[in-house]
Amino acid sequence: MRNSYFQFKQFRVEQEKCAMKVCTDSCVFGAYVEVAEAERILDIGAGTGLLSLMVAQRSKAVIDAVEINPEAQLQAQENFNSSPWAERLLLHPMSLQEFSKQKPPTYDVILSNPPFFLSSLKSPDAARNTAKHTGELLFEDIISFAQQHLAMQGSLYLLLPPDEALYFAKLAEAAALYLRDTLHVYTSHKGKCIRHIQSYTFNALAAPVVKEFYIREEDKVTYTAAFEALLRDYYLAF
């Protein structure tokens, strides 16, 4: 039976109220994004609050977290309140569209593990659908918000499956948000690419940087040295 929480070195993520639980690719994402110099960060679609907590651990930023689902709102707030950074974690229980009407500040970093699987069949579970499929939150909504509220030298980070990542990149470029780099995340050496971690800026590059990241070795059991190094400050096992 899956635990109702995920224990990290400096915080715990309770997750029994959320349809989408803590998963490895989200942990890679949270540890990968560059936030050390950020003063203000926005987490779009906070869920359990995992990403906000991970970036709070290694930054001094004030972090706004937007979440539309009532159960996830309660869960994220509980996780924020019990963390060492509660005073810097601000939950906004509303949609991104509603939040954009609140005259939010400019952000140095905007990050999101947004609804995805544009063309896949929907699950019969409504909460899981909202968490995994575009419907409540469109890619265009994220791009529009970034155009208005991302600092000129800021970064927008996305975690998406490969097909959806390519689609997002086309939409973003048409809106003058340019792909800076992509991390292809693989389950293992010789395994499949399951996610792209993308960063976007307002500065166009001749060619975005593409890197590869492997979670496990070829035996599909042993974590790679790169994974251990990235998650060492978070995972109890390392």
Rank of each mutant, 00 (worst) to 15 (best):
M1W: 03
S4N: 11
F6W: 13
K9I: 06
Q10P: 01
F11V: 08
A19M: 01
K21F: 12
C23S: 15
T24L: 12
S26F: 07
C27F: 06
A31N: 08
A31Q: 04
A31S: 12
Y32G: 14
E37Q: 14
A38K: 06
A38R: 05
I44S: 06
G49F: 12
L51R: 11
L53P: 09
M54W: 07
A56L: 01
S59T: 11
K60H: 12
I63S: 07
E67V: 11
I68Y: 00
I68S: 06
P70E: 11
A72N: 08
A72H: 02
A72W: 01
Q75Y: 03
A76R: 01
A76E: 01
Q77C: 04
Q77D: 04
Q77R: 09
N81V: 01
S82D: 07
W85M: 08
E87D: 13
L90E: 03
M94G: 04
F99L: 10
F99N: 07
S100V: 10
K101S: 14
K101T: 15
K101Y: 03
K103W: 00
P105V: 15
D108I: 12
I110T: 08
L111M: 15
L111P: 09
F117S: 03
F117P: 01
S120R: 05
S120W: 00
S123I: 05
A127L: 09
N129D: 09
T130P: 00
T130M: 10
A131N: 04
K132E: 07
K132Q: 15
H133F: 13
T134W: 01
G135D: 12
G135A: 14
D141A: 15
I142T: 13
I142W: 03
I143F: 05
S144G: 15
F145H: 09
Q148S: 14
H149G: 12
Q153R: 10
Y157G: 10
L159A: 12
D163L: 09
D163A: 15
D163Q: 12
E164Y: 05
L166R: 08
L166S: 14
Y167W: 03
A169V: 03
A169F: 00
A172G: 10
A172V: 05
E173Q: 12
V185P: 03
S188Y: 00
H189K: 14
K190C: 11
K190Q: 15
K192M: 02
K192Y: 01
I197S: 10
Q198E: 14
S199P: 00
F202L: 14
N203C: 09
V209F: 01
V210M: 03
Y214R: 02
Y214Q: 02
I215A: 10
R216P: 03
E218F: 04
K220P: 02
K220L: 02
T222G: 04
F227Q: 06
E228L: 12
E228S: 09
A229H: 03
A229W: 00
L230S: 10
D233P: 00
D233Y: 01
F238L: 11
F238G: 14
